[in-house]
Design a protein around this nucleic acid. Structure first.
Lengths: 114, 114
DNA sequence: TTTACATTTCGCCTTTATATGAAATATAAA
DNA sequence: TTTATATTTCATATAAAGGCGAAATGTAAA
């Protein structure tokens, strides 16, 4: 039963939902996400590993950065279903809207190394 | 954002998933559910209130019993979507299968008052 | 090969969830 | 109206989740 709750658990944290919604706009590295959420890097990294473990996102190493993106072709159809549901799920939330605006402007060369 | 995670949180506990799957077979009172899950009555009552608060189930008072049933017409379309997803979600789980078998046989007049 | 930077892992603390038994509430039967 | 039964609420203990900073890891630039 643990496996069955894993997907729902991954989606039941507000910051992880924010991350997923941001990644639906654009793939991002850890420090860009950190800059938007205003959390410790280690915290963001942990959230990302939970989303990755659940199969919602993928990582792509690019030099010293690690880019995260929505998994475009999840093996588990339940994940595809949940991801596409999220498309219209919380689009009206003010926090999600402002996150998306920040994501458009974020620049890893300005944001990182501080 | 709290409101947005509420639905996922309600589904991210194994015992609550078991309850939902049982109720998909048949509406049940608290002591019948307690008998199958082997948890304290107060614990089951709490789980039911979380599922009810999320909009997944309804309660119908019947004398000294309170019957719970899957919400047949949820106002929130996301709930309908999640409930129907659960139909095929974890039908292969051994625990869910044995729960459903127990639910067929359970008799509140034998099970309650002990 | 140092040095700098991005990320992950670790240990620890705080908060939230889940579980319980006892007490409170509600209804039905005696 | 007492008594019994079903459920909820409360106080509380334990487990799990989420947060942080420091140390460890991996890569790139100097």
């Amino acid at each position: 039963m643990k496996e069955n709750t894993k997907l729902f658990k991954a989606l039941s944290d507000p910051n992880r939902l924010r991350i997923l919604k941001m990644l639906q706009s654009k793939s991002l590295c850890v420090c860009e996400i950190t800059d938007v959420l205003k959390l410790a890097t280690s915290t963001v990294s942990k959230h990302l590993s939970i989303l990755k473990d659940g199969g919602f996102i993928l990582e792509q190493k690019n030099g010293k950065w690690v880019n995260y993106l929505i998994n475009p072709r999840p093996s588990d159809p339940r994940i595809s279903s949940l991801i596409s549901t999220l498309d219209f799920w919380i689009s009206d939330d003010q926090l999600i809207i402002s996150d998306k605006q920040k994501v458009q402007k974020v620049d890893r060369f300005k944001v990182c190394s501080r």
